[in-house]
Design a protein around this nucleic acid. Sequence first.
DNA 1: GTCTATATACGGATAGAC
DNA 2: GTCTATCCGTATATAGAC
Lengths: 240, 240
Amino acid sequence: MSKRTEFPMTYAEFNKAVTISKRDIYKATIAENRETMRVKKEKTVVKNLEKIFGAVLKISNRKGFKAMSMRDLSRESGLSMGALYTYFSSKDELLEMLQNQRRSISEKILRERVAQESTPQGKLKAAVYTHLYLSEAMQPWYFFSFMEAKNLNKLEREKAVASDLGLEKIFEAIITQGQEAGVFRQRDSRLTASIIQGMLQDWYLKHSKYAKRDITVDQYAETINEFLLAFLTPPSDGKA
Amino acid sequence: MSKRTEFPMTYAEFNKAVTISKRDIYKATIAENRETMRVKKEKTVVKNLEKIFGAVLKISNRKGFKAMSMRDLSRESGLSMGALYTYFSSKDELLEMLQNQRRSISEKILRERVAQESTPQGKLKAAVYTHLYLSEAMQPWYFFSFMEAKNLNKLEREKAVASDLGLEKIFEAIITQGQEAGVFRQRDSRLTASIIQGMLQDWYLKHSKYAKRDITVDQYAETINEFLLAFLTPPSDGKA
DNA sequence: GTCTATATACGGATAGAC
DNA sequence: GTCTATCCGTATATAGAC
């Protein structure tokens, strides 16, 4: 339909890099919670954390974290109730660990990629693509984070909100820069940033719908990018 | 910023009409569930249903339907446990009633308003404004429907999905018509419709954020409308 | 029609065997 | 390091008084 504008990296390439750093995140999670998870062979811990987190996401994203019983989790993960409780001290703590995991990995990567671009259009595109790639690679985490945010305690919920606002600020700054440089039209940059976030969110909230229709993350990213350029680029007949 | 294009009706006017028909919905709910709610004075039933639904939405939208105990609901609604169970036969049935309520009221109104317009741009604008007005007037219902859809049984969940697809089809048809009439550019109409839905969803999912920033539903609707026209209207220098 | 009191089951968490 | 068996609180739902 419209000509394909290639992003510096395809999703397939990107995904390899992220899969590797997921392991690092497990290790970081272990380091942060050394009191609860009394020292064990790191290999065992990483293996079991993968089983646990995978099972939690699978069950919770179907019927909700609250509705997931520890017996459900025990069955799905293949670990006994007792074994589970050596990796976390309460169901609530388990919830926190999952939320932190997604945040720490995502924020770092996004900032790095945006910084590599120099033009506002380049930064905007990098932010759109990278965020969508991240939410594709970690779709269950993103979905979980959104749906279960209300179950967090006050402090953790505030961290989640702050993280969301941080993403919005990134888009807002890019738009403002583009306006100052004269390449973007005068639009409310904060409201625009907020709407962009909503558009990106739809990708991981309605993931199965898009999968059923064989829409790839690259197609989606390209369409969003065109959407934004149409809105932000000045009309071609020159009236500002 | 951009000049305000007035929709046939302001939100304030619209809201009056919807508030009236909410009562009709309660009555319809009663009619549909006459077996469970053994015959009582209709006035009493309407009054108590309002209390019950209001309380459910308040508690559930804060901490989730599953986490809301019947004791919570009893306290918040001012009705005893026993009294509650004369209005529904199980917690699950209560969930269904809330979902049906939102759907029946919304779909009818949206279709009517869209049909009143003749041009594709007019229809598009009417659909955007009306959907946003509806989700503003019934924000707690919309939020609840989205967040608790996973807790429904298979049949009810299918009804919810079908309703979502119905909305998407409305937008898709408008876009296709506009393309055939030559007023809209060639874009993937289904994907575009899907993205529009995501943009509209953000309004009720992040309602408190927008409220805090004093963004009104009219401002939001206007911005979305401009967004869509920028994407769908052919470039002004005439290259199709 | 609505309340209080309770039956019955299921939840998270842990103690102690291996 | 992991499992089984169990404690104990809280959940939904209802029976029976008023």
